[in-house]
Amino acid sequence: MIMTTEELKNLKADKVVDARGTACPGPLLAVKQSIADISSGGIMEILSTDEGTKRDIPRWAKKKGYDYLGDYEESGYFTIYLKK
């Protein structure tokens, strides 16, 4: 289920992972480390300046059985959402 930017902006995240300024695989590892902090059905918001992250997160989420909700680029960084 890929959401529109507007829908994504209306989501209330249970956890924000700010990985801006770290290079690959930093953001992915930050997400992996933080996923335990939210319960099933919880929403995670990931901030990243690394272009590869917005491709890595959907792949990783699929493998782990989580839902990738979508992403948008604004103010020089990507905001990516997934649902546990």
Binding site: C24, P25, L28, L29, K32, K63
Partner: peptide, 10 residues
């Protein structure tokens, strides 16, 4: 190290 990070994520 980067590849190890990918392996660790998975």
């Amino acid at each position: 190290g980067v590849i190890l990070g990918g392996a660790a994520a998975e």
